[in-house]
Computed example of a mutant assay.
Amino acid sequence: MNGRELAAEGVRVEESLLHLLRDRLGLLGSKNACEQGECGSCNVLLDGVLVCSCLVAAGQAEGSDVRTVEGLGAAGLHPLQQAFVEAGAVQCGFCTPGLVLAAYDLLERDPDPDDATIREALAGNLCRCTGYTQVVEAVRQAAQAREAGGAR
């Protein structure tokens, strides 16, 4: 979990990875919204693949590398998180962790995406506050900063 070995006892068969993260491990970045994989608020990286943690059984994560938004910045904000702040892409904050992880996943695959590619990569994330313009700007800024300074 976020680069550390972690064990959870008594995981129930019906328990989702989302509930394990929030209720047992205290990692509150992944949000519980639709529980149907439609909103992206619970996004995590599971063995490097962006998934909706509400759709993953907790037991499926056994032996896997799980990365949550809390695991992005080792000491302080990750450059992508900082770009979200600077671009005003953080409003109420509910959807922000899922958007940040979707953007992180995109930039790992495509370090210099155009706006259409950014919008497509974020299409699985619902936000009622930002209107997405600031979010696209934040991803663009993070990509430019990464290219200029090599930040990951």
Rank of each mutant, 00 (worst) to 15 (best):
N2D: 15
G3K: 08
V11S: 09
V11H: 09
V11R: 05
V13Y: 12
E14A: 14
L18I: 11
L18K: 10
L25G: 05
L25C: 10
G26P: 01
L27V: 10
E35L: 14
G40Q: 01
G40C: 09
C42F: 11
V44T: 00
L45S: 04
L46P: 04
C52I: 00
L55V: 07
L55C: 14
A57V: 02
A58P: 05
A58G: 11
G59F: 10
Q60E: 15
A61Q: 11
A61F: 13
A61K: 09
A61H: 10
S64E: 09
S64W: 00
S64V: 01
R67P: 01
T68L: 04
V69C: 14
V69Q: 05
L72W: 11
G73H: 10
G73C: 10
G73Q: 08
A74T: 13
A75Y: 06
A75I: 03
G76Y: 08
H78I: 06
H78E: 07
P79D: 09
L80F: 12
Q81G: 03
F84V: 04
V85D: 03
V85G: 02
E86C: 00
G88M: 11
G88F: 09
A89C: 08
V90S: 04
C92I: 06
G93K: 03
G93Q: 06
T96Y: 10
P97T: 11
G98C: 06
G98T: 10
A103E: 12
Y104L: 05
D105Y: 07
E108R: 15
E108C: 12
R109L: 13
R109W: 00
D112K: 13
P113Q: 08
P113T: 13
P113K: 12
D114T: 08
D114R: 10
D115W: 01
D115Y: 01
A116S: 14
T117P: 00
I118K: 06
A121Y: 07
N125F: 05
L126A: 00
C127I: 08
C127A: 04
R128F: 10
G131C: 06
Y132H: 12
T133F: 02
E137V: 06
A138G: 02
A138D: 03
Q141A: 14
A143L: 03
Q144T: 13
Q144K: 15
E147M: 03
A148D: 13
G150N: 09
G150T: 03
G150W: 07
G150P: 05
R152M: 01
